[in-house]
Design a protein around this nucleic acid. Structure first.
Lengths: 334, 334
DNA sequence: TTGTATGCGTTATCAG
DNA sequence: CTGATAACGCATACAA
């Protein structure tokens, strides 16, 4: 592990001062053309790469941002939403000077994540999760700019920057589609009660049912997991066997519900029409394509980066709430 | 974004020198007890967190390692192997002082990944991928210690450190399971002859048969594809119609073999017991679950970290080849 | 346009 | 056991 070349070495090789080399490296316009060339030649020959720690120490900017994911690693990987979100984020980030540091930690016992951010490792952070109540995030308040993928629970941040879809509108959209198909005995499988996204979708469901003059009583909860949704589906069928419509708050949960229906010989969409949420890959895993509300998660990831970069760029009027549109993707299930 | 407290501030608050504070922070044994307490109190009160850039610059250690994944982001997330590998890796790393920097880049046009590592951002790197031929990795040679998850293709690294499964043991494991079921007329469908993984599995098969005093003559090759395996299956049945056991060197090939058996009305496992390899999703595609040899990917991730940490710790005799055991996943086919 | 000098926050090497 | 003090590699006011 030999010693890498420093600015000093490049300067010597090019016959200029360190300051000039630094200017060339940072693309300063006021350096004479031939000097630039000479320096770049020296850089190439020596294989010089700026030392990030030194650069960061001197400029107090790290050129890296953290993606904080307060989830289990397995959960992070298992959920297509995160995959898609991260893809959009990564793509957008690739076009910038920044690099991404992924910090996945469900709980943060040693406060490693907090120490990481507070230790000046990153210029900003993006937080994505389906959960809330991670009060350790409060420790990051005011340290660096933070943008949330999905509106955070109140209490985590006073006036957060976030990117989100209009989940109430999404829930309404799904439900109205079912109503438009003539379904009247419609149930919903919601996500966790401690998550705004989940609760907003439920609110949209209720609003649509109210508007149609129908009772929105068939409600159960699936915790955003397939097994959880399967259990919810069983309970719903027990209470109301003659359901003809179902809105499930995530596609992953929908797969769980579909499995239960298939096992009982209940046909989709003939007997029960189903609308999911997310337009994740899970929507097309099964025999029949799932009609679903599309969360443009890739766009959300990209937008989150945009917002953060504007913040880092010192843009004075970045909006706190950044809402991206949802749309209904119609397939076979409804 | 206020100015975070520095060592200096802590030193002043505790009435000692910076050097002493540094010692306390780094757990040096030779500091008087009461002084330690005073310093820790000051640290807590000020909410001091060491600045990583400065620390890294001074000590030339970053306490972070990179996970380099030369794949598409979507591929990285979609593949259960990576998910599981990363889970094991992350768990092991959580117990250490290190943090993980994820760098996913299929191609590296701007050499961002290379620059990142060469820029002194990490103390070491772990590389996982299904692909080979990523010559950009050669640029990292000698910069920091690197450990590969899975033996890298020759040419990427002269004498690489890597973690891999023991394919010979895997082939043996599968075959011995068949023998343990009382099967005696056992055939195998191997992979390509020019792949070590494939040949090692075959060697394991032969060794197990030898040990059992049985002839290992029923051998054919399926090129790791389902059609190839189907053809091999037909040839094997032609030569020896009374087979009662079969070891197929990949689950994908097993699906091809199973199709042939089904077409001929040969029952699995009643007539022929089958063991596959990989524990891939293909193992559960069919009607009957495939008993298969699984790569303990989570263990591999953890082991990769272990190896790297030993390297970083200056351990003089870390083995280059680190082989982890395989395990048998028993389902219905054998 | 270029060079000089200083400081960024820590660690590490000396003395004491 | 503790305190000065010199690096660490780079960016950047300030001079020239």
């Amino acid at each position: 592990m030999r010693h890498p070349p420093t600015l000093e070495a490049v300067a010597e090789a090019a016959g200029v001062s360190r300051a000039t080399v630094s200017r060339v490296v940072n693309g300063s316009p006021r350096v004479r053309g031939e000097v630039v060339e000479a320096v770049q030649k020296a850089i190439a020959e020596l294989g010089y790469v700026p030392n990030r720690a030194a650069r960061s120490l001197a400029s107090s900017r790290t050129h890296s941002i953290a993606l904080l994911v307060p989830e289990e690693v397995s959960r992070f990987f298992g959920d297509p939403y995160f995959a898609s979100f991260t893809t959009g984020l990564d793509r957008r980030l690739a076009a910038s000077e920044y690099v991404l540091n992924l910090v996945v930690a469900r709980d943060d016992p040693d406060r490693k994540a907090v120490r990481y951010v507070r230790g000046g490792n990153v210029d900003g952070a993006i937080v994505v999760s389906h959960h809330s109540g991670h009060e350790f995030l409060a420790q990051l308040e005011g340290v660096v700019p933070i943008v949330f993928g999905g509106r955070p629970e109140a209490g985590i941040s006073a006036e957060p920057y976030f990117v989100d879809v209009d989940n109430v509108a999404g829930g309404r959209l799904a439900t109205e589609h079912l109503l438009g198909l003539g379904r009247r005995r419609i149930a919903t499988i919601a996500g966790p009660v401690d998550m705004t996204a989940s609760m907003d979708r439920l609110a949209g469901f209720r609003a649509a049912m109210d508007d149609a003059g129908l009772p929105s009583t068939a409600i159960d909860y699936g915790n955003f997991t397939a097994p959880g949704a399967a259990a919810a589906m069983r309970r719903l069928l027990e209470e109301q066997p003659d359901l003809d419509g179902l809105f499930v708050a995530s596609d992953l949960m929908a797969t769980g519900a579909l499995r239960v229906l298939a096992a009982r010989g209940i046909r989709v969409p003939d007997d029960i029409a189903i609308v999911g949420y997310d337009d994740s890959p899970a929507a097309t895993w099964g025999e029949i394509g799932l009609t679903t509300v599309s969360q443009p998660s890739e766009l959300m990831g990209a937008t989150t980066v945009d917002v953060l970069l504007r913040l880092l760029g010192g843009d004075p009027d970045v909006p706190h709430a950044n809402i991206v549109p949802t749309e209904l993707i119609i397939r076979e299930s409804a």
